[in-house]
């Protein structure tokens, strides 16, 4: 559905060189530190910035050849951008009605009521959670085939985050041909939501794996220096010096469980993996 092939973008202090793919029927996550290049990749995918090399295709078309009709099949959420805060939900309804042929006004109004979003209040007076919910509602209210969500849960409390993730699950359940590309710095959101995950660091994709595999096969090994010296390092992706010895990231948890019972093995978590991929070195 969306593919970035060796997309390059150079700034003065940062460069992006990224390849990734979002498949139909899947939720793909993009994780990385602040400034890792998540938003730059999203903006390139949406044609908001030019890129120096590579190719981006959306719905099988080159991004530069996208028509307004194609754009109407995308729903987008940015953490720091949206409709003017001086508008109300009631103002936005006729705007969207005239921009999207598939816009479902009753759905937006009904969902706004369900999530306690006032129709006649200016958006600037909404709380962070209300603004985030409205952005997602707008993105899904015109039956988009692809959602591109950059940090949609930013600044939300646990309850608001759960409600928002629930909305996304409902959206996916309605049509199996839909897809979502989502970024978040909160790995817990992505662990439960995504089918596959890309990890980006300093503008480069450093890891891509199915979430199930990440959570079942990846693990963090903790050991002292003597254990590290005798360890089979064929399946070690990266290691990090620790006060107690070493921590190592592996994608063959079972192998180390069977062969190194004395080594402490922690089940894979996205946070742990991200720390290891960023701060660790290859064994």
């Amino acid at each position: 559905m969306l593919e970035l092939q060796n997309v390059k973008k150079a700034y003065k202090n940062f460069s992006l060189d990224c390849s990734m793919r979002v498949k139909e029927g899947q939720i793909t996550g993009l994780v990385g530190q602040n400034g890792a290049g998540k938003s730059t990749a999203f903006k390139a995918a949406l044609g908001l910035i030019s890129f120096d090399g590579g190719r981006i295709t959306l719905f099988g078309k080159d991004i530069k050849a996208l028509s307004s009709k194609d754009r109407a099949r995308i729903g987008v959420v940015f953490p720091d951008s949206g409709f003017s805060g001086y508008l109300t939900v009631k103002d936005i309804v006729p705007v969207l009605k005239n921009l999207y042929s598939a816009f479902d006004a009753p759905f937006l109004i009904e969902q706004a009521g369900r999530f306690g979003l006032p129709l006649n209040q200016q958006i600037k007076a909404f709380s962070t959670g209300m603004k985030a919910k409205l952005k997602v509602l707008i993105a899904i209210s015109h039956h988009a085939n692809l959602l591109i969500l950059d940090e949609p849960t930013l600044g939300l409390d646990v309850v608001a985050r759960d409600e928002l993730l629930f909305m996304l699950r409902e959206y996916m359940e309605q049509d199996e041909r839909r897809a979502i590309l989502i970024s978040s710095h909160l790995s817990a959101d992505l662990e439960t939501l995504c089918d596959d995950l890309y990890m980006i660091h300093r503008g480069r994709i450093v890891l891509h794996e199915d979430t199930d595999v990440l959570l079942s096969d990846y693990a963090l090994l903790k050991m002292d220096r003597a254990q590290f010296d005798t360890l089979d390092k064929r399946f070690i992706l990266s290691c990090k010096d620790e006060p107690y010895g070493y921590s190592c990231l592996t994608n063959q948890r079972q192998f180390y469980m069977e062969n190194y019972p004395q080594v402490a093995i922690e089940k894979g978590s996205i946070d742990g993996m991200m720390t290891m991929m960023i701060k660790g070195v290859s064994a």
């Binding site: 949406l46 307004s68 987008v76 940015f78 951008s81 409709f83």
Partner: peptide, 10 residues
């Protein structure tokens, strides 16, 4: 930064 969102609309 409203332009970023506006130009994702059709």
């Amino acid at each position: 930064n409203g332009y970023a969102f506006l130009f994702t609309l059709p």
